[in-house]
């Protein structure tokens, strides 16, 4: 899994109300609230703020507002999927077009073209069933191993397509 630790900077705005002894805590809390769970196009999903680099920089008062802006530097744990990467994912939805699976915050679409041809879609149970081995079926909440085939990076989201059309890919027990 592509987890990385990266150093990032974020301008945090603080209301003058917080200009007191607990300012530091407020700053860090605000930073975490604002950053964790977001997507940055280059670095991927920010999973967690690991550490805010000390000493904290001096804030700059924004004219006319009273807010102070702190350019905080912090180390963050990010999840960045790459093309060609093999990931274990959980199936969230099965349609006749393919399978939607999730790896943490990332949704990956596996088209039916990328599903082995010996697996057929069963409308009733919303699953892909192997023709050879009836017990082998991919349905909601199944765990599958897939390879990321392509990633589309938006300003605020990642979407990916994957394949299970290769050796050692597909359903995992």
């Amino acid at each position: 899994m592509g987890f990385f630790q990266v150093e990032l900077t974020k301008n945090v705005r603080v209301h003058p109300r917080h200009f007191h002894s607990k300012l530091k805590e407020t700053l860090i809390q605000t930073l975490m609230d604002e950053v964790e769970g977001t997507v940055s196009g280059r670095f991927g999903f920010v999973v967690s703020v690991l550490e805010v680099l000390q000493p904290l920089p001096k804030g700059i008062l924004r004219e006319g507002f009273g807010f102070a802006v702190y350019p905080l530097k912090y180390k963050a744990l990010v999840f960045r999927p790459f093309k060609g990467e093999v990931l274990d994912a959980v199936v969230t939805n099965v349609t006749r077009h393919g399978i939607f699976a999730q790896v943490g915050p990332l949704t990956i679409f596996v088209s039916r073209h990328q599903i082995p041809s010996d697996m057929t879609h069963d409308e009733e149970t919303a699953s892909y069933i192997s023709v050879v081995e009836k017990a082998e079926r991919i349905q909601r909440d199944s765990a599958i191993r897939l390879r990321v085939n392509g990633i589309k990076i938006d300003a605020s989201s990642f979407t990916a397509v994957g394949t299970i059309l290769d050796d050692y890919l597909g359903l995992i027990e």
Binding site: V14, H15, H18, T26, T30, D33
Partner: peptide, 11 residues
């Protein structure tokens, strides 16, 4: 403008 917005933003 000021009092309420920040807390709202901050969590």
């Amino acid at each position: 403008e000021m009092g309420s917005q920040t807390p709202a933003y901050s969590g």
